[in-house]
Design a protein around this nucleic acid. Sequence first.
DNA 1: GTAAATTGTTACCTCTATGTTACTTAATTG
DNA 2: CAATTAAGTAACATAGAGGTAACAATTTAC
Lengths: 227, 227
Amino acid sequence: MKKKHTKILLVDDEPDILEIIGYNLSAEGYQILTAENGIKAISQAKKHKPHLIILDVMMPEMDGIEACEKLRAIPELSETVITFLTARGEDYSQVAGFDAGADDYITKPVKPKVLVSKVKALLRRFKEEGANDTNIKLGNLVINREEYKIQKGKEEIILPRKEFELLALLASKPGKVFKREDILDRVWGNEVVVGGRTIDVHIRKLREKIGDEKFKTVKGVGYKFVV
Amino acid sequence: MKKKHTKILLVDDEPDILEIIGYNLSAEGYQILTAENGIKAISQAKKHKPHLIILDVMMPEMDGIEACEKLRAIPELSETVITFLTARGEDYSQVAGFDAGADDYITKPVKPKVLVSKVKALLRRFKEEGANDTNIKLGNLVINREEYKIQKGKEEIILPRKEFELLALLASKPGKVFKREDILDRVWGNEVVVGGRTIDVHIRKLREKIGDEKFKTVKGVGYKFVV
DNA sequence: GTAAATTGTTACCTCTATGTTACTTAATTG
DNA sequence: CAATTAAGTAACATAGAGGTAACAATTTAC
């Protein structure tokens, strides 16, 4: 993920803080959004779906903790990292912050360098966690969705699209039996009508390339991938 | 969950739309309910607790958004998936829809195939989220519906489909006596006619594999599974 | 206690779902 | 646009799940 596309929402009631933090982060290439209170923060968050939200704890009207709880309740923001900004010494807010669903906290005053590295660290953590969706690792097998390739041990295998998608589907839940109908729906799509032996043939090819033992047939139901 | 038992409530003021969508979905095996307006939709929903509700946004009297909010307020429908049906271009309704608690939206006109696959996807998402009851644990026995396998102590047993389904049915309510007729309906399906000894033979095989003592015969009635 | 009904057991058969191969058609690629 | 690779089809092979028949054992009815 490039910084240019990484959105950070700053929420604080003091314009000075917004300015100084905003300046430092945008100098790093991040896209900055701001809000002066919890209510505006929520509407901004809904609108822009930022990757990171930095929330001041002490704010008039709706404080940071309450805002955090509200933000966490929004499904689209489940992937968003939330961190608190707290004055040094207000120890209680740490605990309350984590209860409310925050991922980290930053104490004020904060040196620009420290702030930037903290933000980077948080986003890196986020990115790595989110990247697990694209790379499936199973035993000696790595399925790389992004690059459309398979790594088996040190060997790199390029699979044709359908075979790749079939493998990716089965491997997305190892052990789970996927019904033939579901496989058709999800790999071929509803629109396409294919003959009755098509899935079998593709399974056969995968067995040849990946290993026979990894694909189990459950007669009358479908197939499953085992590790 | 079999499609036969999946209820979908269609709400639209145009009978044509109800008919065409209803036809396509019932052809897929879903059980279809309909309502011409928001008020009727709510009473239908309360009565039948559908798994999915497809709501037209533009309706006289109570529009889709208002209906959606009312539906979401009904506790029994918390598990229900709600999706809007909106004419292409009415972009505002998307946003308003999500605010009102909808899970997705479908734009009209919609091709039957697309509709069907969207519905399947929605129900799959829902099903996966609510799929905590796929594992039945009874004593030293674990029945794993998702992986179609049985775990007895440390031993793993793979059962043929009918045997698995028969076991899963009996074990779904330990102690309850299932009538022969009911077993036929639910494992074999009411269309199929099989000979009089078929169930017994399958029970025999289960007794062999799982343990004689777990399957009790209730003469003149049926069988039950005991722990 | 005997007959009738119901269930248990075994061996065996059938037919369906899947496996496999070779081939045709469609899509990509240089 | 020719060559190459992917996707899908057809045709046949095969295993084993699912079912049946025949008879035994057990329970229930009278």
